[in-house]
Simulated scan of single mutants.
Amino acid sequence: MLRGYYTAASGMKTQQRRQDTLSNNIANAQTPGFKQDQATVRAFPEHLVQRMGESKLPTTRQFKVPFSNNVGPLTTGVYVQETLPDHTQGSLMETGMTTDVALTNGTLPDENGALLFTVQNNDGDVRYTRSGNFTVDGEGFLTNNRGQYVLADNGEPIFTDGQTFQVSPEGVLEVGGEAIPLQMSYTANHQDLIKDGEDLFMLEDEGEVVNGRGVAGLNFSVTQGYLESSNVDEGQTMVEMMQAYRLFETNQQVLRAYDQSMDIAVNQIGRLT
Results as ranks from 00 to 15, higher is better:
residue 86 D to L: 09
residue 47 H to S: 15
residue 54 E to C: 14
residue 29 A to R: 09
residue 125 D to A: 15
residue 122 N to F: 13
residue 104 T to H: 09
residue 56 K to S: 14
residue 210 V to H: 10
residue 88 T to A: 08
residue 164 T to R: 12
residue 182 L to Y: 02
residue 110 D to H: 07
residue 264 I to C: 15
residue 49 V to L: 14
residue 171 G to Y: 03
residue 243 Q to M: 13
residue 9 A to V: 05
residue 137 D to I: 03
residue 132 G to E: 00
residue 91 S to P: 05
residue 70 N to L: 07
residue 63 F to E: 14
residue 81 Q to P: 10
residue 47 H to E: 13
residue 255 L to V: 04
residue 227 L to H: 01
residue 5 Y to C: 09
residue 67 F to N: 02
residue 185 S to F: 04
residue 244 A to K: 03
residue 82 E to T: 09
residue 20 D to T: 13
residue 241 M to F: 09
residue 257 A to G: 14
residue 111 E to I: 08
residue 207 G to K: 01
residue 152 A to N: 04
residue 22 L to Q: 00
residue 243 Q to A: 11
residue 151 L to C: 06
residue 179 A to Q: 11
residue 80 V to M: 06
residue 126 V to D: 03
residue 192 D to S: 13
residue 254 V to T: 14
residue 61 R to V: 14
residue 72 G to I: 02
residue 41 V to T: 05
residue 48 L to H: 11
residue 224 Q to F: 00
residue 134 F to H: 00
residue 184 M to R: 10
residue 79 Y to S: 10
residue 103 L to T: 00
residue 233 D to Q: 03
residue 31 T to L: 00
residue 191 Q to A: 14
residue 99 T to K: 02
residue 161 D to M: 07
residue 80 V to A: 06
residue 62 Q to K: 15
residue 242 M to G: 05
residue 161 D to G: 04
residue 226 Y to D: 12
residue 36 Q to M: 08
residue 232 V to A: 03
residue 138 G to F: 12
residue 23 S to C: 00
residue 202 M to F: 10
residue 17 R to G: 15
residue 197 G to T: 00
residue 270 G to V: 07
residue 241 M to E: 01
residue 196 D to T: 09
residue 270 G to F: 06
residue 62 Q to L: 12
residue 153 D to V: 10
residue 78 V to K: 08
residue 243 Q to F: 13
residue 203 L to M: 06
residue 147 G to W: 03
residue 179 A to P: 09
residue 201 F to K: 04
residue 236 Q to D: 15
residue 150 V to I: 04
residue 220 F to S: 02
residue 154 N to E: 03
residue 246 R to Y: 04
residue 50 Q to L: 14
residue 109 P to I: 02
residue 26 I to H: 01
residue 57 L to G: 08
residue 128 Y to W: 04
residue 168 S to G: 08
residue 15 Q to N: 11
residue 22 L to A: 01
residue 264 I to Q: 06
residue 185 S to C: 07
residue 252 Q to D: 05
residue 18 R to K: 07
residue 99 T to A: 01
residue 138 G to C: 05
residue 185 S to I: 04
residue 110 D to M: 06
residue 185 S to R: 04
residue 83 T to V: 13
residue 234 E to C: 11
residue 214 G to A: 11
residue 222 V to H: 00
residue 175 V to Q: 00
residue 125 D to E: 12
residue 117 F to K: 01
residue 20 D to L: 04
residue 138 G to R: 06
residue 218 L to G: 10
residue 155 G to Y: 01
residue 6 Y to D: 13
residue 261 S to M: 15
residue 46 E to F: 11
residue 109 P to H: 05
residue 256 R to G: 14
residue 23 S to N: 08
residue 25 N to Q: 05
residue 251 N to W: 07
residue 81 Q to D: 09
residue 233 D to P: 05
residue 112 N to A: 12
residue 149 Y to N: 12
residue 66 P to A: 01
residue 111 E to T: 15
residue 262 M to S: 09
residue 71 V to S: 14
residue 214 G to Y: 07
residue 124 G to W: 00
residue 170 E to T: 11
residue 265 A to R: 08
residue 16 Q to M: 08
residue 223 T to C: 02
residue 55 S to Q: 14
